[in-house]
Computed example of a mutant assay.
Amino acid sequence: MLTRINPEHVLFLDIETVPQYPDYNDLDETAKQLYEQKTRYQRKEDFTPEEFYDRAGIWAEFGKIVCISVGYFKMKGDIRNFRVTSFHGEEATLLKEFKTLLQTHFNKPQHVLCAHNGKEFDFPYIARRMIIHGISLPFKLNLFGKKPWEVPHLDTLELWKFGDYKTFTSLKLMAHVLGIPSPKDDIDGSDVRDVYYEENDMDRIIIYCEKDTITVAQIFLKLRNEPLLAEDEVLSV
């Protein structure tokens, strides 16, 4: 089934998120109480809500998106290119820019979105943050009334499960076992909060996010038993 999809019809993406505020004490009292309730089972007795706040970025209610990186294939005869670009900056603005991309270039029935663990994280997170900012959902993110086979989303984690719902495989692990080259990164997901708030280094976050987007595309190719992207086939636009 995967081989029937035209790679040019797929928009690959990855998002990076951080807590909405630099510090737990920036929350108002209601938000603090709600965060305590939301994280009760994840924290257990090991952390106070304040100690656990550096992880708030994983929840759309307490986090925000600081980068959306996207990539797409362009084929011309035997020439194959993968173009990658990123939206970053103020959250409402980057969400509107991403929505414009979906509406102008990936709005046809054959177009699909693809991310690793996208169905559990990236896609609903983007949709929730759009709603919070009063941005109407683009067709590709509005799932109301759609049957499962009508949802225009691919998830490389789901594809790798082959019906097994008992396990989670990280993007890094999946790339490793599939023999996909992964350059050493100076940060990982757990570092993004500090890089954003403490170091104010958005460029490092963009590079990290774009590398993950490229890796998702490489996994897509591997699952189709096709040659991986060479370095000179990836273009930053």
Rank of each mutant, 00 (worst) to 15 (best):
V18T: 08
I5T: 06
Y197K: 02
E150W: 14
L143V: 15
I206Y: 02
F162I: 08
R129I: 02
S69E: 03
I214D: 00
D23L: 05
P49L: 09
K166P: 01
E198K: 15
L2C: 02
L34C: 08
W149V: 01
H153Y: 09
E8F: 00
P152I: 00
E8D: 10
R204D: 04
L102V: 05
D185W: 00
Y208T: 04
V84Q: 03
G71K: 00
F123Q: 09
V70I: 11
L94P: 09
I205E: 06
K172N: 12
V66H: 03
I126H: 11
E51D: 06
V177I: 15
K74Q: 15
H116Q: 01
V195H: 11
F52N: 04
R193K: 15
H111M: 07
L94H: 06
G77E: 07
L95P: 09
P152F: 01
G71Q: 05
R43K: 12
I15E: 08
D203V: 11
D78A: 14
E199S: 10
K76Y: 11
G63E: 07
M75I: 13
Q20T: 03
D122I: 00
N25A: 08
E8H: 00
N225E: 13
E36R: 11
Q103A: 05
P152Y: 02
L2P: 02
L235T: 14
V195L: 12
L94S: 09
C114A: 11
V177C: 10
A92T: 09
C209Y: 01
H153G: 01
K99C: 07
I58D: 02
I79T: 13
C114D: 05
E90A: 12
K76I: 15
Y41I: 15
H153P: 04
P148I: 05
D185F: 01
E29W: 02
E231M: 11
D194R: 15
R55Y: 08
K44L: 14
D164E: 08
I132V: 10
N81A: 09
L95W: 05
F139V: 13
Q103R: 08
H88Y: 13
S190H: 14
D194L: 10
S170G: 12
H133Q: 14
L94W: 04
D46E: 11
T213V: 12
Y165L: 14
E45Y: 13
P109M: 05
R204L: 13
E198P: 02
G145S: 13
V70Q: 02
H9V: 01
T156H: 00
C114R: 00
L157I: 10
R204K: 14
F98K: 07
S190E: 14
N117L: 07
E36N: 12
G179F: 03
A92R: 15
I68V: 05
E199H: 14
E91W: 05
R55G: 03
K32R: 13
V84T: 13
I65H: 04
D155R: 00
G118H: 06
E50Y: 06
S69N: 03
K161E: 07
N225C: 06
F98M: 09
G189M: 01
F220I: 15
F121A: 14
Y197A: 03
K38H: 14
S182W: 07
